[in-house]
Design a protein around this nucleic acid. Sequence first.
DNA 1: TCCACATTGTGAAAGAATTCACAATGTGGT
DNA 2: ACCACATTGTGAATTCTTTCACAATGTGGA
Lengths: 209, 209
Amino acid sequence: MKMTIPESTIHRMPQYIKVLEYLDEGKVLFVTSRDFETHIDVNPSIIRKDLSYFGEFGVRGKGYSVTGLKQELEKIMGLTGHRTIIIGAGNIGKALTNYKGFDNIKLKINAVFDNDERKIGSMINTIPVLDIKTMKAYVESENIEFVIMAVPSSIADLVVDQLIDSDIKGIINFTSKFLSVPKRIKVISINIDTKIMEMFYFLKKSRMK
Amino acid sequence: MKMTIPESTIHRMPQYIKVLEYLDEGKVLFVTSRDFETHIDVNPSIIRKDLSYFGEFGVRGKGYSVTGLKQELEKIMGLTGHRTIIIGAGNIGKALTNYKGFDNIKLKINAVFDNDERKIGSMINTIPVLDIKTMKAYVESENIEFVIMAVPSSIADLVVDQLIDSDIKGIINFTSKFLSVPKRIKVISINIDTKIMEMFYFLKKSRMK
DNA sequence: TCCACATTGTGAAAGAATTCACAATGTGGT
DNA sequence: ACCACATTGTGAATTCTTTCACAATGTGGA
Ligand SMILES: NC(=O)c1ccc[n+]([C@@H]2O[C@H](COP(=O)([O-])OP(=O)(O)OC[C@H]3O[C@@H](n4cnc5c(N)ncnc54)[C@H](O)[C@@H]3O)[C@@H](O)[C@H]2O)c1
Ligand SMILES: NC(=O)c1ccc[n+]([C@@H]2O[C@H](COP(=O)([O-])OP(=O)(O)OC[C@H]3O[C@@H](n4cnc5c(N)ncnc54)[C@H](O)[C@@H]3O)[C@@H](O)[C@H]2O)c1
């Protein structure tokens, strides 16, 4: 049990949590690795292998306790209540700020930052839009560990420079730029455009046959 | 050159296109596989291997023509002008509908569908919000190949049933549900929540050391 | 025209992830 | 208390992906 944990395992863990949440809502008490196949596109032995990196959570002959495993996985993934800020009060920034579902992953959006005079000082729901100039100080005083970046892609590097200067640990990146950052900062990119291009490729292939 | 193309290659192809667009804007004429390392997190030989699945596009000793390669890759990925509809005129649906950048990937959003009486009949920018009841007919008459689904996760299966009934080929899925569809339909999921949970894990790890 | 050089394209090697297959073990019915 | 059964946890086998390393080849300067 002293192996390094594969990247792909980390990608799947949150999906397992989602499935367990869903089953829990449906009052399901036990789940087997085979049952997961209905809810997620992975083979049962991959689930068992993934879990084995972290411990033994199952009961042989029976499966896994839904609430028990959910709690374990939440602990493993560090789902302990996080706060963040959003940079860019545009289309995506507003959509995220208005989103109610972040409660489920215990995420609180503290503030949104922008450089547009017309937006600064306003509120999105109950969340204030603040001046980007005050971001560094805010991040430090409020101990923000990671940010969500939703500014135009052309501005990405500019914002990243400011973030490198602060002691942020992570960036969720909605821009289509590759961010060059020191390795103490973890970048996770959500790239809608490239996902849609993948779809184009599959459409083309399906037309061909 | 008759091998099957790895999934991971398909994930990277759109990223190469993005880099080439960026270089092209900067009037760069030639690019080597090594140059890509500045803009994307992959090793040069992977780029060469990826491209080799589709043909030979480089000039030995020189590199790749930026505009030439861009055009080739756009052709390979089927970037030929697509139309789509968005299902759900909520936070994400509106953000996508308002997004100008889809021009770059030659994507046109034809219409948005919703079941909320207050939204049906209105416009988002120049794009009409139509009644979900008319979706199937619309998809067929307008020959829509894929849809973008941005309804509440609890409604996902309901909408999927209607889509299976139509002759849609693909779904870009923003809900957190795993969609069970016949294999003629390609599902590509963009799961913001699970990406953020991955970030939590890395934050936890970085706190530990 | 020739040659030193740079970089591609690609088999072969190395490394990583998935799947198999089964011993280990708890379950639940009798 | 026992046993037939189900399912876990995990080494070993397999498959998939990345990286290496170099022959092939076009470039550009002398
Ligand atoms: N909206 C989408 O559906 C969508 C789809 C794919 C990709 N994206 C990407 O997401 C990012 C955001 O897209 P969007 O549509 O929300 O953009 P947007 O233009 O609607 O919003 C950008 C916001 O950033 C603010 N901003 C600009 N410069 C700033 C600065 N220096 N400091 C702080 N704030 C600044 C602007 O005032 C604006 O409020 C872009 O990189 C885009 O490519 C968006
Ligand atoms: N907004 C975000 O930042 C965000 C983040 C992560 C995940 N998501 C996911 O994206 C999806 C959409 O989120 P959102 O925030 O845009 O939701 P939302 O509630 O703002 O919008 C959903 C829209 O769907 C419409 N709708 C409801 N039932 C419908 C039906 N039967 N047919 C047609 N339309 C129907 C609603 O009227 C509403 O306009 C959800 O699954 C959510 O979990 C959103």
